[in-house]
Amino acid sequence: MRLPWLGNSRNANRQPSSSDIYHTEIIADVAVPERNESVRFFSRKIVRPGKLRRFSNQDLRESLLSCFYLGVAATLPVSWWGPICGWVSGFRRKRHFRKDFARYDVAVKAVLGDAVDTKSMFEAQLAALHTRRLALAAHLVAGWRWSPAIRLEGLEALQGALRNGRGAIIWCDQFAAQTIIGKRALHEAGVDAHQVSAQYHGFSPSTFGLRVINPPLVKVENRFLKSRIVFERTDAYQVTTRIQKTLKANGVVLMTNTVYAGSAFTEAAMGERGWTHLASAPANFAARAGAALFHMATIETVPFRQYRAIVNVLSAGPQMPAAPARDATAKNLAVQARYILSKRDHMLETLKLCPEQMMAWSSATRLTERPTEAAIGNDGA
């Protein structure tokens, strides 16, 4: 799996990009007076659709890793799994340090401060990305040999919100264990959830990946879901309608914090001097539908043996006075901004517990101030 901030290689830069190219614009800067902060809202529109490759450079590697971890999960003791992930992550460690560490170092220190040991954290993150693959293999072949202890915190608050009859949105962070273990934690607690999922969900965005590499992950996740709502830009209206119907039926909708699936996202200050980008869709649905909004993060406390799934209520703060119809959009953005800051606070709190397990990091500079961004209006995702 490529780290989220990785760019193309020098050779790839000589060829036309296969990624979607977007035009990004600032919608509004919304102040939150009681927090003495503001949240910036962006819109993203495709100006050049990307070309779906039949086979990507990483597909062979992902296929070999999948086969290897299936063998590990089927034959070796659970106590060996963690060290094996660390060992395998070392094969390409020098390459990742050469290409990725400089940006990672700046981003992490912008959030957590200059005293943090980013070198050790980066090595641990590379290993954590492999634990995600091995966890998938374990669900496929380990069976009774593997029964991790998963502690779910915040279930009472979620159940209380559902008693109001307006549904609930659970906004999940991109920790390595969230993809499968987070869904499993809710399922084992009796929560039937509907996952909003991007079309290219998985380890590979190629045609081969969609047909061969990604389906096992989707299949395992679906064990713990009531349904999957696949998001495509061409049918955003239908997906929105389905989410609204699910919430009206008092359902639980899971959304992952990725800014690349939707047409809008936000930017807020993060930690010491960093900036984070958060999806705007969860806050928007909560503001419009009146559904309860929750933060969720799942972290591994003992490798492959113990997990902690944390669910917290997100608050929009004090109720705002009724506004005229023409101010409805401004009011909605003000409510969203408060949800965004509440989400940011909980995410930062959890991030400090296990920063090495976070798969997507923030930036040390604002989006509009990055020299590598082509005038912010032509960035690829």
Rank of each mutant, 00 (worst) to 15 (best):
L247T: 06
I21G: 01
R366I: 06
S315Q: 03
G7Y: 03
F101I: 09
L136E: 02
S342M: 08
W87Y: 10
N57P: 00
K51M: 05
Q238H: 14
E232R: 14
L155S: 10
N36S: 13
T234R: 13
W361S: 03
M296V: 04
G165C: 07
A286I: 07
Y339M: 00
L52R: 12
H130R: 04
L152Q: 01
E272T: 08
Q199K: 09
R48A: 11
A261Y: 08
A316L: 00
H23V: 02
M121H: 07
E37H: 06
D59N: 04
A374Q: 10
I46K: 10
I299Q: 07
Q195H: 14
P324Y: 04
Y260C: 02
R48P: 00
I340G: 06
N13D: 05
P303F: 08
D345T: 10
G7N: 04
S363D: 07
R166Q: 15
E349G: 03
T234E: 13
H277L: 11
T298A: 02
I213E: 03
G182T: 05
V335Q: 09
M359V: 11
C85M: 07
E25R: 14
P303N: 05
R10I: 14
K183I: 04
R53M: 09
K94V: 05
A12I: 05
G154K: 05
L162C: 07
A157N: 09
T372K: 09
Y104A: 03
P33F: 13
F175M: 05
P49W: 02
Q199R: 14
Q319C: 04
A268V: 15
S197P: 00
A364L: 00
G262S: 12
E373Q: 04
